[in-house]
Design a protein around this nucleic acid. Structure first.
Lengths: 181, 181
DNA sequence: CTTTTACTTGACAGTCTGTCAAGCAGGAAG
DNA sequence: CTTCCTGCTTGACAGACTGTCAAGTAAAAG
């Protein structure tokens, strides 16, 4: 009952797709917004990002963290980007979706900060970056929108995306001059 | 008469802001879409990106091209991002705005390709990147959405954005091992 | 003075969200 | 078997928005 959603999909379309009347949708969800938030929560549960982050939690070194993060996230995005975009697009005019979006972004920012802090602790964070700026830039780089540009508009495969993003992030944030790669 | 526009602004709002009746707007613009495209063209003319690209055209080396591009573009984005976003957001449901957007993106992609090709010709393109992939990644990196993340959501100043983006792009695409930085 | 131009008000169709009322079919409970 | 509750149905309607049409007005242009 949780189906595709996009800004160009009306409640009638959803009802028709689901096989019930438009009004019956309102018996289950108070509004379009609530339907969307419920769908987001449902997809979160089904796709289980937290489950997928297990290898990330197992990683110890900064470079491992970085690579695992890009791997996990790069495999996760293709499955959620449509819904994530719907959430993102309504965020400007809707407080509830905005806070759902911001909450997920805050989680991602924390992960980015943790990666950068680990690199810093190991002394291999590239010297031109402050910890805060590096984390923010890392967060921007792995955004869903960047993935869409590369994967959808440029046609990159998931593996090409992951490989290239790892190269970009390592050459940017990992100090090449400090001994081992 | 060309004012702010966003998905949450109705034709009535615009008419009110401009001081004429809603219907009179339709005497000048056939539709909301046309009003938007006219505004985009007008802003293009007023802000004169092509004028601003003069120093870019004067640049010769790949690194100069890269740095000038980031400088020009980083100063340009803050003045156009609102309207650019309105264009971007309606692109999914509107063929005319989609092609206006795609045209501008194609220009930007050509610039990116030219930068990468120049670096490649000079033999300092980082060896892990093909010319095509590098140009596409560069294009994704300097996207308006990335600027918004950093400048608006993270609060970076224009100069911080330009400085950091130059660092990121140079450490990514310029081969550090080939003699002069 | 007449025509044209630029605008006005008012009305209306069509799309969408969200709400309300009345009705219907089937299962559970007495 | 009858009663009630649940989940759904159709139909109607308010309110917001886009786009269109008609008729009228005021002032500049000829």
């Amino acid at each position: 009952m949780e189906k595709r959603r996009g800004q160009g999909v009306s409640m009638s379309d959803i009802a028709k797709a689901v096989g019930i009347s438009r009004q019956a949708l309102y018996l289950h969800f108070d509004s379009r917004t609530e339907l969307m938030l419920a769908t987001v929560d449902y997809v979160d549960e089904v796709k289980g990002l937290s489950e997928r982050l297990k290898p990330f939690r197992a990683a110890t070194t900064g470079i491992e963290l970085l690579e695992t993060c890009v791997g996990v996230w790069g495999n996760h995005i293709p499955e959620i980007h449509g819904l994530a975009n719907a959430l993102f697009n309504t965020r400007e005019t809707n407080e509830a979706t905005a806070s759902a979006w911001n909450g997920r972004m805050a989680d991602l920012q924390n992960i980015c900060q943790r990666i950068i802090d680990t690199l810093h602790r190991e002394g291999i964070l590239a010297p031109k970056w402050s910890r805060r700026k590096a984390a923010e830039m890392l967060w921007a780089m792995i955004s869903i929108q960047n993935w869409e540009r590369l994967a959808i508009e440029c046609g990159w495969s998931t593996n090409q995306y992951i490989r290239s993003m790892k190269i970009l992030l390592k050459s940017t944030f990992v100090d090449e001059t400090s001994g081992r790669e």
